[in-house]
Amino acid sequence: MFDVQVCNHEECSRLRVFNRLTCFEHSENAEELQKQIEKYLSENTKLMGLSLSRIRLKDMDLSNKEIWGCNFASSYFENVDFSGCTIIYSYFDFSQFRKCNLENTNLRNAVYAGSKIIDSSFNSSEITICNFLGTHCVNTSFNDCDLYATRFINSKLEDLQFVDCNLKRTHFSNSELKNTQFKYSNVEEAYFEGVIESK
């Protein structure tokens, strides 16, 4: 699991970048650090215990990686390909995902809470026991997914598709659903208490 160590800079409470003493903002050469990290992410298949909160990644191929115990909280991902990744015990909370491909992924105990997920796809993925609390998802598809015990509590889901999904023990409680489809999915085994639904 990643180290939770705070930036060395005075009065900064952000987390350090792994193998560094400061966060991104307080590194001496943030641009160079960003390049080094992008290189590291591209070259390594197994990404274990990395703390990279507040990173910005655009147009990157991270497909088929094994991401274990990493921290990408409060990050920004645009047009990033995570397809085929196995992501376990990793934190992507309060992040933004735009046009990202998360198809055919295996997500277990992964955390996306508080994130904004726009124009992305999780189709044909195993998304079990994951945390999507308070996410704002727009125009994103979860078709053909196993969402066993995953929690979308307090989320805002707009123009989403959950077609042919396993929803056993999936929590949507207190969420706002707008134009969200559950065709061929076992909705009777999911939790929908307090859901506000609109077309």
Partner: peptide
Amino acid sequence: PPSKLSIEKKL
């Protein structure tokens, strides 16, 4: 699933 204190405080 796992969580974080910041998540629980807010959500």
